[in-house]
Design a protein around this nucleic acid. Sequence first.
DNA 1: TAGAGGATTGAT
DNA 2: TCAATCCTCTAC
Length: 188
Amino acid sequence: MKLPPSFYVGHPVSYIARSLLGKRLVTSGVNGTLQAGWIVETEAYSHRERGCHAFGNKKTPRNEAMFLPGGHAYVYLCYGIHWMFNVVTGPEGKGDAVLIRALQPVPEAGIPSPRVTSGPGKLTKALHINRSHNGLWLGGNTIWLEEGIKVSKAQAVQTTRIGIDYAGPDALLPWRFYVKDNPWVSRK
DNA sequence: TAGAGGATTGAT
DNA sequence: TCAATCCTCTAC
């Protein structure tokens, strides 16, 4: 069952990042094949802190999708090589989003080799996510999120985010969440 | 219009 | 530890 629009609003972005653990991300390929995986690692980005592309309410052609209503996709190219997939949260115009950093492929999804989704740049490649997914509603038929497995409080680890040293004190915010002891979580 | 740098990854 | 690789943003 796909997640309702209400899932993406009404809570702090960090709460939604935690809630996304265990949810199922599915993409539909050109020939109708599905790629899917359970979310095992996320990071929250709030417009109120420096690590976020929408910090200071700054809107550019690149991050425009971040200002869509919660439940849309924000996809951008990083280091000229990797696509990053984010879930927009909160009301329209706010600029909060959750970066999906790792997936555990579901057995029937047809993702060929293991260990191809343990990192934000790798999972987008495995699910064929690219610029064409930027701004899409995550309840459509190209890419969507649905209910998955339950992640207990004991399994969910909360810690600091990765790769945003430039954000200064905000880099210390404990806004990274992952499933404990899950081999599909990205390495540090 | 030129230059710097990035929410990463994999090889050395 | 470092290069790959290119798009975006900022400054001039």
